[in-house]
C-alpha cells in the first residue's frame, strides 16, 4: 500500500494493472464503470448488452493494459474500447482488411467537444436542439464519439451514404442557425 498523498492517478492504476495488480483494477472499475455504463446505455437499449460491453471493456484493460500508451486521458481510451466493443457486437464479422484499417489512434478531445462542453448554455446548444432526431444522432456519433462514417453507419443501422448526407444537412442547418 502506498503512503503518498491522495489517490493514485488513472495512468498509475493502468501501470499497476500491467503489473498484475488486481486491486488497481478494482479501483479503476469503481471509478469508471458508472459513467461508462451510463454512456453505453444511451447508445444501446438492451441492459444485458450494456453490462457485457462494460464488462468486456474492463476485461480488455486487464488483459492488454499496455495498449494504453500514456497519451490522452484514460477515460478517453476506455471509451474507445467500449464503443468499439459495442460496434463489434452489432457487426461481429469483419474482414481482415477492415480490422487492419480499423486500428485507430487515441481519441483526443476534439475542438467540437471542447465547444460542446458548454453546449447547454450556448447558442450552439439551442441550434442543435432544432435538429431533427436523426440528424442529431449522426452528429453525436461522428462528432462526439469520433466514429468514422462506416462505424457510425453500423451503430445507427443505416447506410454510410445516408450518414454522409445527414452530416452535410446537419452542418448546413447548424451554420444557418448560428448566423
Amino acid at each position: 500500500m502506498t503512503l503518498d498523498q491522495g489517490a493514485p492517478s488513472d495512468a498509475e492504476l493502468i501501470a499497476r494493472i500491467a503489473d498484475g495488480d488486481r486491486g488497481a483494477l478494482h479501483t479503476l472499475f469503481t471509478r469508471h464503470q458508472p459513467w461508462l455504463a451510463a454512456r453505453v446505455r444511451r447508445r444501446c437499449a438492451d441492459p444485458a448488452v450494456v453490462a457485457e460491453v462494460v464488462n468486456d471493456t474492463f476485461l480488455a484493460v486487464w488483459q492488454q493494459p499496455t495498449r494504453y500508451k500514456g497519451e490522452g486521458e484514460v477515460a478517453a481510451w476506455l471509451w474507445g474500447i467500449a464503443i468499439r466493443t459495442l460496434l463489434h457486437r452489432l457487426r461481429p464479422r469483419k474482414s481482415v482488411f477492415e480490422r487492419l484499417v480499423q486500428s485507430r489512434p487515441q481519441h483526443h478531445p476534439s475542438a467540437e467537444e471542447a465547444v460542446l462542453v458548454q453546449v447547454q448554455h450556448s447558442d450552439v446548444g439551442q441550434a442543435l436542439q432544432k435538429l431533427s432526431p436523426e440528424l442529431l444522432a449522426v452528429v453525436q456519433a461522428t462528432v462526439i464519439d469520433g466514429l468514422t462514417t462506416r462505424e457510425a453507419a453500423a451503430l445507427l443501422g443505416i447506410p454510410s451514404g445516408t450518414v454522409k448526407s445527414r452530416m452535410s444537412r446537419a452542418r448546413l442547418e447548424l451554420r444557418e442557425a448560428l448566423l
Binding site: 459513467w35 486521458e73 477515460a75 471509451w79 478531445p109 460542446l116 462542453v117 453546449v119 442543435l128
Partner: peptide, 10 residues
Amino acid sequence: ATSVEAHLMG
C-alpha cells in the same frame, strides 16, 4: 446529455 458526456470525459 451529450454535453454532460463531453464534460465527464475530462
